[in-house]
Design a protein around this nucleic acid. Structure first.
Lengths: 158, 158
DNA sequence: AAAATATGTCAACCGTCCTGACCTAAATTT
DNA sequence: AAATTTAGGTCAGGACGGTTGACATATTTT
């Protein structure tokens, strides 16, 4: 007979709220993406390239924590559809600098409007409407070793 | 030429923080799950059955928003491995009431400890350590039409 | 008795990943 | 200059976690 583990101190409701919240958050863009034959992987790639134009493939792989093989088809599709362009690096011609086109920027912005609407709506429900606390909480949810990378992502906006 | 969409009012940092936070949150359990040959789908099933012992299959499908075909193999594996049991309903013998075994409860609790640790750690970083605001925010992130279902999930704990 | 329902299964397919291997062009090191 | 390393690309096979449609059985409801 397995001795029971103690469930003392567990925050089941918060765990579940996080699951449900994220599910709805990411689902926002699905219909829009589908119009282009895209999925969530495309959304992520487009988002981060738009946020950091000129980034190289390796940076994208690091941010997204995926392999180049996973990235390959998605990136190809975004380029072929005219949402992204890639340019050989001026200093290192092996690199591929990634940029959104206007079309790509527009799509990324459109999708982010949906997500922001949801987030802001949720913040409006708070008594103190404290966006900073939410940002701090979410930042605190990130693995400590990864916080610098994430912070760098946000600070070094180009 | 596509006219530029306005990116005014977009909260890129919060969008990204949410993505990174959730990624780390769900990754916590991966190694533990893998020991049993399980994945995230198993975790979800186990979690909700543990939270609502005696639930029927249809309820689980509704909560998880997946099809019975998706659920089938996962549920089978959890039953075969001794983490869940299913019992024909006393009032409606077509139904299958799902219960965790002690083994299943223990695993669910173990995994939830990991997730709670992360959540509480993040809340500790807040100046006001306000768990309720976080819960309210996450609740507000959920689609309004789904809030009653989620609330019911949390209130009617058995 | 007929119709509806809860669940289970088969089958084919999809999106999003992974691993291993191999290749070319370019940069760096020897 | 040659050897080695590196950035990115491709091929291939497979896993995870889903979807849709169809069909079946046992049970409940009409």
């Amino acid at each position: 007979m397995d001795p029971p583990e103690s469930d003392e101190g567990l925050d089941f409701p918060l765990v579940e709220l996080f699951f449900f919240a994220y599910r709805d958050f990411i689902a926002d863009a699905d219909d829009a993406l589908e119009q282009y034959g895209f999925g969530r992987a495309h959304h992520r790639v487009l988002h981060f390239v738009n946020r950091r134009p000129g980034m190289v493939v390796a940076e994208l792989l690091e941010i997204l924590r995926i392999t180049k093989q996973s990235l390959g088809p998605v990136l190809r599709q975004l380029i072929d559809s005219g949402h992204l362009v890639q340019i050989a690096g001026p200093e290192d011609r092996r690199q591929r600098l990634l940029y959104p086109t206007q079309k790509g920027r527009n799509l990324s912005i459109e999708l982010t409007h949906m997500q922001t609407r949801r987030i802001k709506g949720a913040i409006e429900l708070l008594k103190n409407k404290d966006r900073e606390s939410i940002a701090d909480f979410l930042f605190g949810m990130i693995e400590p070793e990864e916080r610098d990378l994430v912070k760098g992502l946000m600070d070094k906006q180009r």
